[in-house]
Amino acid sequence: MNEKDIRKSQIKRTVFNVILYTFLVLVALFVIIPFYWMILTAIKSDFDLVVVPPKLFLKYNEIVFQNFADAFERAPFGRNMLNTLIVAGISTVGTLITTVFAAFAFARLNFKGRDLLFIVLIATMMIPGEIFVITNYSTVARLGWLGGNNIPQVYSQALLAMTLPFMTSVFYIFFLRQSFKRIPDELYFAAKVDGTSDFKYLWRIMVPIAKPTIITITILNAMGTWNAYIWPNLVTDNASFRLVTDGLRNAYSELGGRTIFNEQMAAALIITTPLLITFLLLKKYIMRGVSRSGIKG
C-alpha cells in the first residue's frame, strides 16, 4: 500500500467517524430533549410559559419553583409516592416469596406433571393482560375491596387490591428457574451430605447464588409498580390512595383547555426524578437486569 492509499483510507475513516458521531449525537439529543423540555417548563413562570416564541433557555432570575408547590397542593403526590413505595415493597416481597418457592420446585424437585405444568404456565405469558383484568376487577369488587354502595374504600383494601393480583409472576418464576438450573447438582449433593434440608438449601445456598436474578426481579418489579397505571387506576378512587402514575394522570385529566403546563411538568418531574436518580445509582444492575430479562435465559 503506498502513501496515497494510506492517506485515503485515513480520510475515509475520519469522515466515517464524523458521520457516526453526528448521528449518535442527534439521536442522543432526540432522547434528551423531552427531559430538558420537562425540566425547563417546570421552572417557567406562568408569564414565560405563554411567551411566543417560547424561551428555550431561562436566565437565573427567571426560574420559579412555585409550580412544584402548586403541584403538591393540587394532588397528594408525596402520599402517592409513599403509596407506591409501600405497594412496590409488598408486591416485591410477596412476588419473591412465591416465585422463589415455585422456581425451586420447578428447578430442583421431581414431581408428577412438572413439565406439563411448566408449559401451561409459560403459555399464559402469551395472553394479553386485559383478558385477566376484566375478571380480576370483578374479583376484587366482590371481595369488597373497592368499597360498596356509599361505603368508601379503606386504605388497606386499596393496598390489597393493588398488590395481591401481582404477588406472583410466571415470567419471574421462569426467569428464576433458569438461574436455579444453572447451579450445579454437586452443590445440592454437597449440601445434603453436609446435613441440610431442602428448605435450608434453598434459602442458604440457592437464593444467595441467584442474587443477581433476585436483584433484577426486585428492580423490574419496583419499576413496574412505579409505572403502573392501568390497574391502580381501576381499583382506587380516592386521590390519596393512588400511586404516582395514576395520581399524576388523574390530577391533570379534567382541566379541559386550561393551560397549566408548567405545573403539570413540575408534577411530572416530581414523579420522574426518583426513578431517574435510582437508575443513575443502580445503572449497572438495572441495565444488566433488563438486558438479561430481555434475552430470557
Binding site: 439521536v27 412505579w226 399524576l248 437508575f279
Partner: peptide, 28 residues
C-alpha cells in the same frame, strides 16, 4: 446511558412532556 433513559421513565409523565412539545403555540 442516555439511550437507556426512556426505559426508566414514566410513560404518563413523559407523555405529558411530549404533549407540550407538540403544543401549537408554545411547543418546542
Amino acid at each position: 446511558t442516555i439511550f437507556f433513559l426512556p426505559y426508566v421513565t414514566n410513560a404518563i409523565a413523559i407523555g405529558m412532556a411530549f404533549a407540550f412539545i407538540f403544543h401549537r403555540d408554545y411547543g418546542l
